[in-house]
Design a protein around this nucleic acid. Sequence first.
DNA 1: ATGATTTTGATTGATTCTGATTTTTTATAC
DNA 2: GTATAAAAAATCAGAATCAATCAAAATCAT
Lengths: 277, 277
Amino acid sequence: MTGIFQSRLLWGWGNKMLEKQRQQLIIDYLEEAKFASVPVLRDQLNSSEATIRRDLNKLAAARKIKKIRGGAEVIQSAATPATKIAGKSFWVDKEKNVDTKRMIAKRAVELCTDGESVIINGGSSTFMMAEFLQDRRINILTNSFVLAHELLENSQNQVSLPGGEVYRKQSIILSSFENDTTQNYRGSRMFMGCPGISEIGVMETDPLLILAEQKLRKRADKLIVLADSSKIGVKGNLIFSPLSDVDMVITDSNADKTILKYFEAQGIEVIVVDACD
Amino acid sequence: MTGIFQSRLLWGWGNKMLEKQRQQLIIDYLEEAKFASVPVLRDQLNSSEATIRRDLNKLAAARKIKKIRGGAEVIQSAATPATKIAGKSFWVDKEKNVDTKRMIAKRAVELCTDGESVIINGGSSTFMMAEFLQDRRINILTNSFVLAHELLENSQNQVSLPGGEVYRKQSIILSSFENDTTQNYRGSRMFMGCPGISEIGVMETDPLLILAEQKLRKRADKLIVLADSSKIGVKGNLIFSPLSDVDMVITDSNADKTILKYFEAQGIEVIVVDACD
DNA sequence: ATGATTTTGATTGATTCTGATTTTTTATAC
DNA sequence: GTATAAAAAATCAGAATCAATCAAAATCAT
């Protein structure tokens, strides 16, 4: 019997496998195959169907997989970032323009002066600012749990958080109530990424986030949007804020020049960094 | 003899291995294999299962590895975030009563029912509750950034945070303002550790923390103090709360019985777990 | 060396996990 | 609708794991 994971086990099949280990292998298998039937997993993992079923129940309860009749499937959606909370493996795998986004993030950080207070809205673009904040001394309010973690570990910046429940799907803190600490916080700038920005404004995808983010927006003097060229001109159904509320857009040289001109005509400062592709 | 670490030992298998050395080898092994069962480690390290288990408990308490049924696994997230953020001053230097503190933490978690809302004040004692919260479903408000991080990564509990600045020294969130989210949060119990508890009340050492902690206290119906025997009867200069405000004390069997009797006479429920020393 | 302390490994009983069997549920065909 | 087959859940005995205990061995302080 040759399970595909045999080679990964240092001690071979002779020994018993740990429950946690077996479950991890199920997850790994699903990442690869997308679907798996109970008999297949039974053979792969050299276990009984009863045990496999119990594993699937536990994994499904923990939302690591989705149970379907006859077996299991991966959880599609963007449910993975929550589990890959640690470090670089964040969204990176899904993102294409990583290098460009990194340059945009770098430029964004360069706008800040030490001692300043800024607000950073959570997201994959703004997360990349962490790298360039390492040797800075800035007061940062962020609703991103992962960014806060990163900054606490690898920088000396002052970090503040709004209160609320941590929304696991995006590891963002949702301020559920009206009165929260952010009320008393004031930032000179708020940095945010977005799924799209066009004539109609800045887009957002998650309705749960939008309210909390808009509340943050009120605490900052200026709004700076980090949007690589793939976001420029993209419209969606949820409007985070009208264009009139945007003060600056940082994008890359592949962006549609016509729209950028339009932005500038609206009084928005546009910064273009060189695209890396 | 087939231990994979044989070549690394200068003096060969005939001689005894030092405890620290053995534990380091366990860590090394886990870094490589990700998982390890107790029998495998017993063979690899030429030791007994009892010893391996004791090592695993100590390593898990020090957050170097994660204990799972049947053995151990690496801490997948950035390997050391907990110890790193919290700094050595946190628990590394208090290695003394880890086993006992772990049992106290376990007992504390056993008080909680799934679905309940509780408040957990940050500290080395309460941090150990994380291990036992892994498979629970509890709504947790905590001012401890590291605890929140741990719970988000290794459990499915709902996690909420008070807003405020992260106080790096203890990785505790200081709610700097009057209005914050915790105002709307209600917990049936608040768990806290402390540097000392005696007839005059529960002690605290850090004046910066005490205000934020007292604010949390107001949001919970009952106060449960985790205090191993070395804390019982210890007085300090900063009083967190009078004894009348305490509902329960969880300690170990080495604690001074006279004081415990006094606590009970004051209407405090005292739970004594067996000391592990 | 001597006695005190710590570490170790075997044993115990309680708990949890596993896999075979049986029962219930679900999907599909008739 | 019922019949049928496949899958999931429930049951249960045996196996594995684990914490606690205790005595032997090793280590340490004097």
